[in-house]
């Protein structure tokens, strides 16, 4: 590649600048000699000849400048000249330099703290997802001129069996009234399919996420609580695994608490429960 060929030349122009300048001087001096001798041979006096030679180069300084431009390193040289100028100016007025640095530092610092706060508030559960490969599939039904999602378990089963997808998870909002802890309260959660937690790379802070068998019809009802729900409603009780939470009057065994950063599909989800799947109709 020509780049690797010309790189040493550029470096030389930059780092051995004095040598390069001397070479240029020598080269032009050689020209002046030759041209002067040539003009003398044409019958000019030595003074005249020297003048003609110098004029032919459009003046030594302009000539040198044109040759420096041809080196293509002028921008870098100018940059370094600016840098040197900046250093000199700084030494002369260190107060302004200090002020500028402090202003920049405070500005950058304030910016990054705000970003950290915003990031913490709107933290993304999707960092574990590969946005180039993961997709949302929706079957859509037209209903009175409006389209609405209408995914069924049958469709989930079909999508699962398609080789186009490595894995498919399903989830469905589910609301229930929790009783037995203080006032009865309506809480929002999700019914989730097998593989839900591992797909989202979720970690359990306590306990273990439900096994596949928990999705079978007739399995003992289990529930996974969100970190926030446990902390706010259950007083962060560490011995919570194995206890029972009553939803709509039915007992659910608490098998796990999700880690603090996990939420899906939205931050309102207080719990996740295994979506019951008929093993006959929907082999796992």
């Amino acid at each position: 590649m020509r780049f690797f060929y010309t790189l040493p030349l550029k470096l030389r122009s930059l780092l051995r600048r004095n040598q390069v300048e001397r070479d240029l001087e020598d080269e032009l001096a050689f020209y002046l000699e030759q041209r002067t001798a040539h003009e003398i041979s044409l019958g000019h006096t030595p003074e005249e000849a020297a003048r003609i030679a110098r004029r032919a180069l459009d003046g030594m300084d302009r000539q040198k400048e044109a040759c420096r431009d041809a080196r293509g390193t002028q921008h870098l040289e100018n940059f370094f000249a600016d840098l040197r100028f900046g250093m000199r100016a700084w030494r002369k007025t260190p107060g302004i330099w200090l002020l500028a640095t402090l202003t920049l530092g405070l500005g950058i610092g304030a910016n990054s703290s705000i970003f950290s706060i915003v990031e913490a508030i709107f933290r993304s559960p999707l960092s574990s997802l590969d946005l180039t490969r993961d997709v949302t599939i929706n079957a859509v039904q037209s209903h009175q001129g409006r389209e609405r999602a209408a995914n069924t378990l049958d469709e989930y089963r079909i999508w699962r069996s398609m080789p186009a997808f490595d894995s498919v998870i399903a989830y469905r909002p589910h609301e229930a009234v929790a009783t037995g802890i203080g006032e009865p309260e309506r809480v929002a959660g999700q019914l989730v399919s097998p593989g839900f937690f591992s797909f989202l790379s979720a970690q359990a802070a306590l306990g273990a996420f439900p096994a596949e068998a928990a999705h079978l019809e007739g399995a003992l009802p289990q529930i996974v609580l969100s970190h926030d729900y446990r902390r706010n409603r259950l007083n962060a009780n560490p011995a919570i695994i194995g206890q029972t939470l009553r939803l709509d009057g039915k007992p659910y065994a608490i098998v796990a608490v999700a880690e603090r950063d996990f939420w899906f599909p939205d931050t309102r989800a207080a719990f996740w429960m295994p979506l019951a799947i008929d093993p006959q109709a929907h082999p796992l």
């Binding site: 080269e27 041209r35 431009d69 041809a70």
Partner: peptide, 9 residues
């Protein structure tokens, strides 16, 4: 001659 040197360089 004035344009020769820059061209060569």
């Amino acid at each position: 001659d004035g344009s020769l040197y820059p061209a060569l360089h």
